[in-house]
Structures are given as structure tokens and as C-alpha cells.
Amino acid sequence: MKARVTVTLKTGVLDPQGKAIEGALGGLGFSGVLGARQGKIIDLDLAETDRAKAEADIRAMCEKLLANTVIENYSVEIKG
């Protein structure tokens, strides 16, 4: 089973990398970009075959390691 975890900064948390991306795109002539937020994607290959168990395990992984839940949100997508 495959899963994708998307981690993004919570609204209101400063995002200096997003600001740098926004500025760089403006410098390249893409003036229509009004804002940019940067995040990360983590793709996991899992041995678990039970979808509910896999989702519970991934959420535990996010809470313990993959996301800083004080400043970040995460979403889980299970494929297969």
C-alpha cells in the first residue's frame, strides 16, 4: 500500500521560504503570483494491507515525527 503525507504550515505562521519563492517568481516576470506557501510531501510504501490500520499508523507517525503539529497541518492520502 502506498500513502502520501502532505505537510504545510498553519495559517498565520510566517513562511520565509514561501516569501522567497514569491519574490523569485516576481523577479522572473511572473507578476500574477500574490502569495506562495512552501510545504513538504512524504511518500510512504507500507507493508500494512488494512486501510484503517495504515491510516491510523500514518497519523501516529505524523503526530510523533513527520509534522510539527504546533505550527504545521498534515493530510494523509492512501493509494491502493
Rank of each mutant, 00 (worst) to 15 (best):
V7F: 10
A36E: 05
E48V: 10
A60C: 04
V33N: 10
G32H: 09
T69S: 03
L34A: 15
E55P: 14
A54L: 04
R4K: 15
I78S: 01
R37A: 08
I42Y: 10
D50K: 05
D50N: 14
K40M: 00
L65R: 03
A56P: 01
L65T: 04
E48D: 05
I78T: 11
Y74F: 13
E72C: 01
Y74T: 05
S31A: 12
A56D: 09
L66D: 02
E48A: 06
M1R: 04
L9W: 00
A36D: 13
E63S: 12
L14W: 03
S31T: 15
D50S: 14
I71R: 03
G80Q: 06
A56L: 07
L28A: 08
M1G: 06
N68W: 00
L65M: 11
I71V: 13
K10C: 05
G18I: 04
V33E: 11
P16Y: 03
A67I: 04
E72F: 00
N68C: 02
S75I: 01
K2R: 15
A60S: 12
L44W: 08
D15W: 01
A47P: 01
G27Q: 12
G18M: 11
G18C: 14
E22W: 10
G12S: 02
I71C: 03
E48C: 12
L9E: 11
D15S: 09
G29N: 13
D45R: 14
Q38I: 02
K40N: 06
I21F: 09
C62L: 05
L9P: 06
I78F: 08
L44H: 01
G23P: 02
A67W: 02
D15F: 01
Q17C: 13
G32Q: 15
D45W: 05
G35H: 06
Y74K: 06
